[in-house]
Design a protein around this nucleic acid. Sequence first.
DNA 1: TTATAAATACCAACTGGTTGGTATTGATGT
DNA 2: ACATCAATACCAACCAGTTGGTATTTATAA
Lengths: 212, 212
Amino acid sequence: MRRPHNSAETRSRLLDAARDVIRAQGYAATTVDDICTAAGVTKGAFFHHFESKERLGIAAVEQFGAMASALFGAAPYNAYPDPRDRVLGYVDFRASMLQGDIAQYTCLLGTTVQEVYATHPDLRAACDHGMSEHIAVLTRDIEAAKQRYAPDAPWSAESVGYFMQTVLQGAFIFAKAKQNPEVAVASLGHLRRYLVTLLGQPQDDKHKEQTR
Amino acid sequence: MRRPHNSAETRSRLLDAARDVIRAQGYAATTVDDICTAAGVTKGAFFHHFESKERLGIAAVEQFGAMASALFGAAPYNAYPDPRDRVLGYVDFRASMLQGDIAQYTCLLGTTVQEVYATHPDLRAACDHGMSEHIAVLTRDIEAAKQRYAPDAPWSAESVGYFMQTVLQGAFIFAKAKQNPEVAVASLGHLRRYLVTLLGQPQDDKHKEQTR
DNA sequence: TTATAAATACCAACTGGTTGGTATTGATGT
DNA sequence: ACATCAATACCAACCAGTTGGTATTTATAA
């Protein structure tokens, strides 16, 4: 098991392993050895790069946030000129991701914060920060769409951004409980329908409604 | 430290302790000793009543479901004659519960299933079953309201029931992340608004809108 | 009733294995 | 040569679960 020394790659392998194993087993149930095995390195390497398990958790959460930021920042719906289309495009994009292995499409931050909110303050804060940043990006499009289509509506764009993430996080819980994304997809359908009531229905059929 | 032997009470103390400690720390991070300490009994008593930690978890989940069933079954909104009022009354009731200690108003089942879905099949199934039962009760009122106010709508009552729980579960995650139920309350406000678009706005002002 | 046997409820101490983390040694790149 | 990086060996604390026994309750029968 001799690989050439490559600090950056070893660190990255540990972060990727943490991301995958924690999403599958949860933070507390994941041991340092689990992560080392998944990453193909030993404990010596682990504690060279991270001073504790919690520090690794924080780093993994930060990396997950950066990865999500890049993923959604590059997603095709961002090219829509109408902000309402971008908001609905985001929901459709997320619905299209609900395929394959459950651990691959669920959110590391939501999973983790639920376990550690009362026991690991720094890790909790990292999760909160990552989720809030994602929502802030989303909120910009919602705000722009609101200005255009519902400037006098009583709801705030930010609260809608949080609501969208709330539905997503809840949807992941049911995907896990049912071992099946069907219910989650249906909930995103309801979310989409609600957003249309807030912002109005786009004219062209860029999106297809999915109800049920 | 001598209490009279009372099998039912000891068992009940263990279940209550499990409910509280697991909601605060998560299932995996909670040790059998944690639960015994919180319940004020020894490990001997624990393993007399439950053959394993997972069995206790399953029993705690089942008891939580029964407790919720009793709580919501006896809640005042059930007395409303109009099923639409009952559905909205449920949401308002849940919003009114978002006060005090976080661990006291969050859902043991949602918390647990997220951790164990891939590693503890029986516990996962118990969580799924408990949530589905609760939703089935809810769905009855939704279905009745649909018959009356939106009989030809394209959505199913069941999918709306799941959507309502999805929002609640997601709301709990943000209450934990933010250490604060504000965002959760706002999300229930959005949920309520959506339900009104599906079922129509009640005439009398039994409920007060909260938009934020 | 009451003595006694059997069953249940409970306890403190212990066990084998696991945990996060450390100390030491060796390999690698510059 | 030298600092960085990673492997091995190791540790004390902790884990779920067991043990062997005691206290209490319940069933039985005289």
